[in-house]
Simulated assay, not measured.
Amino acid sequence: MRPKEKQSLSEARVSLTKFMTTIIIAVFIEGLVGVFERSGKAPEDILFPAALLIVATFMVIALGVYQKFSVSAEGEKKEKDIPE
């Protein structure tokens, strides 16, 4: 096992992506369940579940931006032959 500080950029990106994906899925499920529960009983209470869905959408967008910048940084690092 390698110490945490010796991880490469790609290993860090993969582990962070897996973690964030798990969180995003949980937020989407919570939002969807809330929307379906509240829509039949009290439609005026649907604001919080809808906000959860919007937040989860922004999390997906942020993860995509992170992936784009991370892959670009890895490519630049490989081009310059900077040791990790």
Rank of each mutant, 00 (worst) to 15 (best):
M1C: 10
M1K: 06
P3K: 04
K4P: 03
E5G: 05
E5M: 10
K6P: 00
Q7C: 01
Q7K: 09
S8C: 06
E11W: 05
R13G: 11
S15R: 09
L16D: 10
L16T: 02
K18F: 10
F19H: 12
F19A: 14
M20D: 07
T21R: 13
T22G: 14
I23N: 03
I25S: 09
I25P: 03
A26H: 08
V27N: 00
V27Q: 05
F28Q: 01
E30N: 11
V35D: 02
V35N: 02
E37A: 11
G40A: 12
P43N: 03
D45V: 07
F48A: 09
A50G: 09
A51D: 06
L52H: 10
L53I: 14
I54T: 15
I54N: 13
I54P: 08
A56T: 10
A62W: 05
G64L: 11
Y66A: 14
Y66S: 09
S70L: 03
S70R: 03
V71E: 15
V71N: 14
V71H: 12
A73T: 13
A73S: 15
G75L: 06
G75Q: 02
G75F: 04
E76R: 08
K77P: 00
K77A: 08
K80A: 14
K80R: 15
P83E: 01
